[in-house]
Lab assay of single mutants.
Amino acid sequence: NKASVVANQLIPINTALTLIMMKAEVVTPMGIPAEEIPKLVGMQVNRAVPLGTTLMPDMVKNYE
Rank of each mutant, 00 (worst) to 15 (best):
N1L: 14
N1G: 14
N1A: 14
N1C: 15
N1F: 14
N1Y: 15
K2G: 15
K2Y: 15
K2L: 15
K2V: 15
A3Q: 05
A3E: 12
A3V: 09
A3K: 04
A3P: 10
S4F: 08
S4Y: 12
S4M: 03
V5M: 02
V5S: 05
V5D: 00
V5W: 01
V6R: 10
V6I: 13
A7Q: 00
A7C: 05
A7T: 12
A7F: 01
A7E: 01
A7K: 01
N8M: 15
N8C: 14
Q9R: 15
Q9H: 09
Q9I: 11
Q9G: 09
Q9E: 14
Q9Y: 14
L10E: 10
L10Y: 11
L10Q: 09
L10H: 13
L10T: 09
L10I: 12
L10G: 12
I11D: 00
I11N: 00
I11L: 08
I11Q: 00
I11W: 01
I11K: 00
I11P: 00
I11R: 00
P12Y: 14
P12T: 13
P12G: 06
I13F: 11
I13K: 12
I13Q: 11
I13T: 09
I13D: 10
N14K: 04
N14E: 08
N14I: 08
N14W: 11
N14Q: 10
N14V: 12
N14R: 13
T15M: 11
T15C: 10
T15H: 07
T15E: 09
A16I: 03
A16G: 02
A16R: 14
A16D: 02
A16Y: 10
L17I: 04
L17W: 01
L17P: 00
T18A: 07
T18K: 10
T18G: 02
T18M: 05
T18H: 04
T18N: 05
T18L: 06
L19D: 02
L19T: 03
L19F: 10
L19H: 03
L19N: 02
L19Y: 10
I20G: 05
I20Y: 14
I20T: 14
I20L: 13
I20D: 02
M21Y: 07
M21D: 02
M21A: 03
M21L: 11
M22H: 00
M22N: 00
K23R: 15
K23T: 05
K23P: 01
A24C: 12
A24F: 14
A24Q: 07
A24H: 09
E25W: 14
E25A: 08
E25P: 02
E25Y: 12
V26A: 13
V26T: 03
V26K: 04
V27W: 03
V27T: 08
V27N: 06
V27L: 04
T28I: 05
T28L: 03
T28P: 02
T28A: 13
T28M: 10
T28G: 07
T28N: 12
P29C: 13
P29E: 09
M30K: 03
G31W: 02
G31T: 01
G31S: 04
G31I: 02
G31N: 01
G31F: 02
G31A: 06
I32L: 09
I32F: 03
I32R: 01
I32W: 02
I32T: 02
I32E: 00
P33R: 12
P33V: 11
P33T: 09
P33L: 10
P33F: 04
P33K: 10
P33M: 06
A34E: 05
A34D: 12
A34T: 06
E35M: 05
E35Y: 07
E35T: 07
E35G: 06
E35V: 06
E35Q: 05
E35N: 05
E35C: 12
E36A: 09
E36K: 11
E36D: 11
E36W: 13
E36N: 11
E36M: 04
I37E: 05
I37A: 05
P38L: 06
P38Y: 15
P38Q: 08
P38F: 13
P38G: 10
K39L: 06
K39C: 12
K39E: 03
K39D: 03
K39R: 11
L40K: 00
L40C: 06
L40Q: 01
L40H: 01
L40A: 02
L40R: 00
V41F: 14
V41C: 10
V41G: 03
V41S: 08
V41P: 04
G42T: 07
G42M: 08
G42C: 13
M43L: 09
Q44P: 13
Q44D: 06
Q44A: 05
Q44V: 14
Q44T: 13
Q44M: 12
Q44W: 14
V45R: 01
V45N: 04
N46T: 07
N46L: 15
N46Y: 14
N46H: 12
N46D: 09
N46K: 13
R47G: 03
R47K: 06
R47P: 02
R47S: 05
R47E: 06
R47M: 04
R47C: 04
A48Q: 08
A48K: 10
A48V: 11
A48H: 11
A48C: 13
V49N: 01
V49A: 03
V49L: 12
V49E: 01
V49K: 01
P50M: 12
P50H: 04
L51W: 15
L51I: 09
L51D: 09
G52F: 07
G52C: 10
G52L: 13
G52H: 10
G52I: 01
G52A: 07
T53N: 08
T53R: 13
T53L: 15
T53Y: 13
T53P: 01
T54M: 06
T54Y: 03
T54N: 02
T54W: 02
T54A: 07
T54G: 03
L55Q: 01
L55R: 01
L55T: 00
L55A: 01
L55P: 01
L55Y: 01
L55E: 00
M56W: 04
M56C: 13
P57I: 13
P57S: 13
P57E: 08
P57A: 11
P57M: 15
P57K: 12
D58W: 14
D58I: 09
D58M: 13
D58Q: 10
D58C: 15
M59A: 08
M59C: 06
M59F: 12
M59H: 06
M59P: 01
V60G: 01
V60I: 10
V60S: 00
V60D: 01
V60T: 02
V60C: 04
K61W: 14
K61R: 10
K61I: 06
K61P: 07
N62L: 11
N62G: 14
N62K: 13
N62M: 12
N62T: 08
N62H: 10
Y63H: 03
Y63C: 09
Y63E: 02
Y63D: 02
Y63S: 05
E64C: 15
E64T: 14
E64W: 06
E64Q: 15
E64F: 07
